[in-house]
Design a protein around this nucleic acid. Structure first.
Lengths: 207, 207
DNA sequence: TGTTAAAAACCGACCGAACTGTTTGTTAAT
DNA sequence: ATTAACAAACAGTTCGGTCGGTTTTTAACA
């Protein structure tokens, strides 16, 4: 006989939603969008299907809410690393290594890739996600421009350099799906750092 | 009353298969993997479902065969552009523009992205695709190393530079799904050319 | 060369499984 | 008592795979 804790309605809602969103992200990460079903999410979350439909009536609601959560995790994570860099507790190389590690090892990147790709074939999903992506990019750029300065802004601005880096990471992660080769990725990462270092450097710590 | 052309069995097979593979690629491009069904493919191809199952019994057979076709189109296209570059009929800038144009405008890139992402959640599909990807990469590297030389091979080799470029393109294409901004992409492309030009240059035409 | 049996290509109906959304009923909180 | 949270069964659809039957081509043979 388990003891029933008394929880407020808000607590019950919040906990159930949290479970559902975490299960959604996990499902996208593990089995991909094509194999992610609302029933499967409810099962993973340990929540009845009725509870799931109550909080998120349609599959789209679940996906969009999970995406918001992922993007928040992502931008918070990047900002935390950038703060370490600005504080001088992480150097240029270490920062890149840490970001890449976050991309490849964290749940959120591949989950968001699944969703973005799915959105390509789903007009409604795309409409919901587009503003979220724009907001995410703005946060990225804000974080990045607080942390790096361009050596020759007229040629390659800090903002553009950042987008190059993020795009390389995106591309590498896609490639990693079918080509899991640690040595190759270390080589790529090293080259990326070299190539970007020409155009951008961290702000002076403490400045 | 249409006149029935007499065709050999080989011709009939080849034509039907061609229609089915083209329809598969088109379907992946237009509606994505999640919304691509075997019945839909047969409909697009103007082929009965029976004929489809005869030539490609399972969905996987269809997908794998279509992937082989796409990869062939892709590597042939890149080699053709590189040949133009080597012949001096295309300069460094023009080559990059043309490759990017191929990526964004052609059917094959997003189709292959759909398949790669789907493969992440499907062990069997991944097993079938992995060797195809390796073969494709080898062709890329062969084409590229015939066409470019590194300025400082010890620092960033021609091979690694190419992979950086391809990864940036991959990343940009993914980004383009939710952020269709022509100006932004031109800016990125310009920066990419600038950044890579430091480490790599085309072989001398005619050499 | 004309005939015909075998093989290949093609057709479309059918089946079970899985999924999303809906609905009706129950329990817990206010 | 009223409302929100939770539970579970149900309905309609779609999908991938299977299968018996038909048409076209091939090839053996008289």
């Amino acid at each position: 006989m388990t003891v029933q804790k008394r929880r407020t309605q808000d607590q019950r809602s919040a906990e159930t939603r949290k479970l559902l969103l975490a299960a959604t992200i996990q499902s996208l990460m593990e089995v991909g969008y094509a194999n992610t079903s609302t029933a499967g999410i409810a099962r993973r979350a340990g929540v009845s299907r009725g509870a799931q439909t109550h909080h998120y009536p349609g599959k789209m609601d679940l996906i969009v809410a999970a995406t918001e959560e992922m993007f928040a995790i992502f931008s918070d994570g990047l900002e935390a690393l950038a703060a370490e860099l600005r504080a001088g507790r992480l150097d240029y190389d270490g920062f890149f290594e840490a970001v890449w590690d976050n991309v490849l090892k964290g749940d959120w990147f591949y989950s968001s890739l699944e969703i973005i790709v799915a959105a390509r074939g789903d007009e409604e999903l795309r409409r919901h996600l587009a503003p979220l992506i724009l907001e995410l990019h703005e946060k990225f750029e804000a974080t990045w421009s607080r942390s790096f300065v361009a050596t020759a802004p007229g040629l390659v601005s800090a903002r553009v350099a950042m987008n190059l880096v993020m795009n390389v990471f995106r591309g590498m992660a896609v490639q990693a799906v079918l080509r899991r080769d640690e040595r190759y990725f270390r080589e790529m990462l090293q080259a990326l750092k070299t190539v970007i270092a020409v155009h951008v450097r961290p702000v002076e710590p403490g400045k």
